[in-house]
Design a protein around this nucleic acid. Structure first.
Lengths: 207, 207
DNA sequence: GAGGTTTTGTAGCGATCACTAGGAAACCAT
DNA sequence: ATGGTTTCCTAGTGATCGCTACAAAACCTC
C-alpha cells in the first residue's frame, strides 16, 4: 500500500523537476486570459515549462487542471462562503463581493475580467460538463449571499418585504457583467462607481 | 462589369439551392447556443443544410458569417441606437433595453442568454479581432444610452449630479450579467425582478 | 551496487480544425 | 444547341486538438 502522506515527505522514485504550485499559477493566468476552451495543452505546457506527460501526470487532464486553477483563483470556495456567512450584515457581504470583483477585474498584473465569470460562458457540447461545474460554483456563492440576506430580513436588519433572491441576483448580475465590461476596456474607477450605485440602492430599514 | 443589383433580379449562372436567410438564421441559433469559437464549420454546415464550399461562397468565412449573424440577431445596430435616441426619456430607453434583454435571455424557442453578450467573452489570440468587433458593438450601444442619459441631465429630467457613465455602465453590467445568469438557469421572473430593482434605483428629480 | 518506483522527453496517436482545389451540374443569354 | 457564369458536391489540404505509449533517467530502499 502506498503512502498518502503530505507532499513534504520524501517518496520513492524520481522527484518532480518543477514547482507544482508555480506551474498551476501559470496555468491559472493563461485560463484567466483566454478562457478554458481557447487555451490548448500546447499553450499550457509552454507557460508552465513542462511537457504534456508531466502535465497529465501532475494534474490529470485539462478539465481537472482548470478546475484546480479555479479553486486556486478563488482561494477556496469554502472560505468565500464562510466569509459571506460571517459578514456583519448582508450589506457588508454584498459590498465586499462587489468591491473584490471590481478590483480583481482590473489588476495591472493580471488579465482583465474574472476567471470564474468569464472563462467558460459559452461552450461546446464536450465542455458542457466543465461549464456546469463553473455554473455550480457561481450558483453556490450566490446562494450563500442569498442566505445571508434572508438572515438579515429575519433579524429585521433588512425590510421584511425585501426579496432575497432578487437582491442576490442583482449583485451577481453586476459581478458577472463587470467582468465583461473590464474585458471590453472599462476602468477600475468606472467599476467602483457602478458598485457604489448598486450599494446605494440597497434597501434600508427606516431609522 | 457585373451587375450589383438587388438579389431579387435574375442573375446568370446556377441559382442558389438554399434559402440564404434561413441558413443564416440556423447559423445564428447555433452561434447563440455554443458561441463563436466552439461552433465549428462542420456544425454549421450540418444545421444550415449546405456543404462547406457553399457556406464560404455565400458568407465569406466563419468570422463574417458570425458578424452577419450578430447583425441579424440585433436587427441592425443602427435601429437599436436610433430607438435609444428617440425614447421619451433615458429611463424609458434603459428599461426597454433591460426588459428586452431579460426576455431575450429566457425564450423557450431559443438558447438561454444573449448572443451579443455571451458568444465571445474569452477568446484565443486568433479570435481576438472578432471579440473586439463584438466589444465595439457593446460599447457603441452603451455609448448611445450614455448620450441619451446626458441629454436628460442637460434638460433637467435627471438630477444635475447624475453620472451618465456610471448609470449606463450599471445598466450594461446587468445586461451582460443577466445573460450568464440565464445560461446558469435563472428564470425569466427572476431576471425581470432584477430589472425592476435596477430601474427602481434610477435617479429622480424632486417633484 | 541491485531492484523498485516515479518522472522525464520524444514522438506520435486518431480526430477535428478552418478552409479550398477541381470538375460536374444547372442556370442565363444568344 | 452553345458559350458564359455561377453553384454544386467530393475529397481533400496542412495544422492543431487532447492525450498517451515508450523507454531512458533519476530518485528511493535494501
Amino acid at each position: 500500500m502506498k503512502s498518502t502522506a503530505a507532499s513534504t515527505t520524501k517518496r520513492a522514485g524520481r522527484p518532480l523537476s518543477f514547482d507544482r504550485d508555480a506551474a498551476l499559477d501559470s496555468a491559472m493566468h493563461l485560463f484567466w486570459r483566454h478562457g478554458y476552451e481557447a487555451t490548448s495543452i500546447a499553450d499550457l505546457t509552454r507557460v508552465m515549462g513542462i511537457t504534456p506527460p508531466s502535465l497529465y501526470a501532475a494534474f490529470g487532464d485539462k478539465r481537472r487542471l482548470f478546475l484546480e486553477a479555479v479553486q486556486r483563483y478563488l482561494g477556496g470556495l469554502d472560505a468565500i462562503e464562510q466569509k459571506i456567512a460571517e459578514a456583519p450584515t448582508a450589506h457588508d457581504a454584498a459590498r465586499d463581493l462587489l468591491v473584490a470583483a471590481a478590483l480583481g477585474d482590473t489588476r495591472d498584473d493580471a488579465p482583465p475580467g474574472c476567471l470564474l465569470a468569464s472563462s467558460l460562458v459559452s461552450s461546446s457540447t464536450e465542455a458542457d460538463a466543465v461549464r456546469e461545474s463553473l455554473a455550480a460554483i457561481r450558483r453556490s456563492i450566490e446562494a450563500a449571499l442569498r442566505a445571508r440576506i434572508e438572515r438579515d430580513i429575519r433579524e429585521g436588519i433588512l425590510p421584511s418585504g425585501s426579496d432575497a433572491e432578487i437582491l442576490a441576483g442583482h449583485v451577481f448580475a453586476v459581478i458577472q457583467g463587470m467582468s465583461t465590461l473590464a474585458k471590453d476596456g472599462a476602468s477600475r474607477t468606472k467599476l467602483l462607481g457602478i458598485v457604489d450605485r448598486v450599494m446605494a440602492s440597497w434597501p434600508q430599514t427606516d431609522p
